[in-house]
Nucleic acid binder design. Structure first.
Lengths: 155, 155
DNA sequence: TACAAATGGTTTGTACACCAATTAATCATG
DNA sequence: CATGATTAATTGGTGTACAAACCATTTGTA
């Protein structure tokens, strides 16, 4: 069992998991950038498209829950996707408060391009799928821990 | 050996490591927020302070390399730290182009408060130090892989 | 059926984060 | 020693990201 008393300098930058997390997130997104840019997508927009290709139509509330993003972040992002012709923002006929974000033909077609992305990323990273799978499981545990610490999950 | 051919839907949102990375990063930073806010720091500012407590004085170039952040991001951030009285932005006497970011007395004093942060975070997350250490190692490997993919490291 | 509470989105304000262009200082080479 | 190339930092533009305030619609309840 390791303990805080064993750690020489708990404030050392290179020891911080939060620092490694933010650098890893930013730098992995940077690997996506040159592949997404010719598709006219940013990384957050790519994630929204992934959700829509699986589950469209979706309300802002649904996307907010799935992507764990603030509605105030999604609102302008969806307008940019609509301006790019990938998405239409209609009203839910049952509940006029809710938005129904649907894919346009161009939005659906883009999926074929997107299918090339994951293998290209793995090739560029040069990491084994097994190690990535393992990292994914670790990340899911931190996400669960952080969510319950933030009051967004188990008590 | 796992292979892409074995994966049913490579575009499934919940399968994306990049998605898990960004959610983990955002949500772990959210755990820091209530602890950093009374200190008057955001999370990126906290990371800059960590670097300065270890190595001040530092130039923007040094911070950019250590934190792997764009100088254009650091420039206004440092001005906000200076406005908060934690830092002074002087000129390097040897090289008038470079900035020498130094700690004020208040900036140095804040370190005592910051020492309470890491144990408090670990307690809130409710994860073992061993598992965090293990995650940290995995993250360092992705960072190295992403950096070489982005041309910021090994050829 | 009125009407207060709750829900779904948008807007505003502050703070990253990256890119490209700019400016000032230093260096390298003739 | 002059001048072109390099380097360090700043600025401006676009796009997240979160919190708080706001508005319209729906729901719960007397």
């Amino acid at each position: 069992m390791s303990d805080f008393a064993d750690i020489p300098d708990p404030l050392s930058l290179e020891r911080q998991v939060c620092f490694a997390l933010s650098v890893a997130s930013r730098n992995v997104i940077a690997v996506y950038r040159p592949l997404l840019e010719p598709m006219g997508l940013t990384h957050p927009q790519y994630l929204v498209m992934l959700a829509l290709w699986e589950h469209a139509p979706l309300a802002v509330k649904d996307l907010s829950r799935m992507l764990q993003l603030d509605p105030g972040t999604l609102s302008p992002l969806l307008k940019r996707l609509e301006a790019g012709g990938l998405v239409r923002r209609e009203r839910d006929t049952n509940d006029e408060r809710a938005l129904a974000v649907v894919l346009t033909a161009a939005g659906k077609d883009l999926r074929a391009e997107a299918e090339k992305i994951p293998p290209a990323i793995v090739a560029r990273l040069g990491m084994g799928l097994d190690e990535l799978q393992h990292l994914h499981e670790s990340l899911m545990r931190v996400i669960a821990a952080a969510n319950s610490a933030n009051g967004h999950g188990a008590a």
